[in-house]
Design a protein around this nucleic acid. Structure first.
Lengths: 188, 188
DNA sequence: GGGATAGTGTACCGTACGGTATAGTGGTTG
DNA sequence: CAACCACTATACCGTACGGTACACTATCCC
């Protein structure tokens, strides 16, 4: 009976499945068994609904992965733990993760992709900081933190995306393999 | 004066910038300085226009990268050449590549993402075949071709996407670094 | 010249879009 | 009791959507 939460749940489900632009406000309201004015009472606009959705879920994502990104001298351990945190979060919030992924490299002028930009930036900052911290112990990293951050998150997101879309069957060793390959390449 | 080509150019530009669902047929026709019936004469429907767009450009992409994926005993060389082919193609067709990327991990039930699925599959097949061919010389690869194909293309696409969207400045060594990291990891 | 054919413009179809004015409802607070 | 306030339903706004009927023109082949 919590209409607000209900609207957010249905909106997330529909946005993730069909894309933000392809889903109408009416459709969301119908799915949540409320009428449009109710939706507009809580969120003001369709874009406001998306913003709220992104904020709630990205804050949860950051909260879930930030502790895992805490570098304490063991880079492999941290990377493994972090990838695990991402996979776990994606598994628990598959719809949000799918939505997020679709916006990550989405059309750069669509309002939905613009809305996700600051959150993507915060994630990247988290990773750059991790590699910067690790650089104190691995002196030979200078200038490469950004590339590492980008490719690490890219690799994690690629695998999560392919699993979520059913193009790749998940397996127990996937996280380990992914991180191992990131660190040592395919020649090992 | 070539209306058909004009419509395709403008549609590609608009789809890449705002997304397929967010662009109206009227808008495309106006940008191409024709009227809607002209567009419908050539393409039958909005979806037909997208399909044609994808077919033409994906065939060009496959033609551009297939020779580079021809394995002749030197895997590093092949991977380097192939990544270069992808980057070159993306640089020459930035709008198509952006569109393609936005659909790659896009909402899995949207018709635009469904339209790109078979082409993504053909690309992946190309890469799996490459790693399978290489496996004859690198016997220790069994069962990992798919993971390699997926992560290789994921890595290439991640970097191209970030460069195309301006999140990462392109550099001369980028392709080399990317492939080197794919083969040897960050610990080298 | 005459008939077919590809291509294009005018005007229009029904529907769905995002959003809102207005009038309530029920419960809480003075 | 009365004023208030968060919330919800009916009914509607103007606009844009994807798509089309139809008439017209230019070109080409006979």
């Amino acid at each position: 009976m919590d209409n607000r939460q209900n609207i957010m749940d249905q909106a997330l489900r529909l946005f993730a499945a069909k894309g933000y632009e392809a889903v109408g406000v009416e459709q969301i309201a119908r799915a949540a068994r409320v009428t449009k004015p109710t939706l507009y009472h809580y969120f003001g606009s369709k874009a406001g609904l998306l913003d709220e959705l992104l904020q709630v879920n990205f804050l949860a994502l950051l909260e879930a992965v930030r502790p895992a990104a805490d570098y304490q001298g063991d880079l492999p351990l941290t990377l493994y733990r972090l990838a695990g945190a991402y996979f776990d979060f994606a598994k628990q919030n598959p719809e949000f993760y799918r939505l997020q992924l679709s916006l990550w490299l989405g059309p750069h002028q669509s309002e939905s992709s613009l809305a996700v930009r600051p959150w993507a930036h915060r994630q990247q900052t988290l990773l750059v900081d991790l590699f910067l911290a690790a650089a104190r112990d691995h002196g030979n990293m200078k200038g490469r933190q950004q590339r590492y951050a980008v490719s690490y998150l890219g690799q994690v997101n690629t695998f999560i995306g392919l699993v979520l879309n059913g193009f790749l069957e998940p397996s127990d060793g996937m996280v380990f393999n992914l991180v191992h390959q990131f660190m040592h390449g395919i020649y090992s």
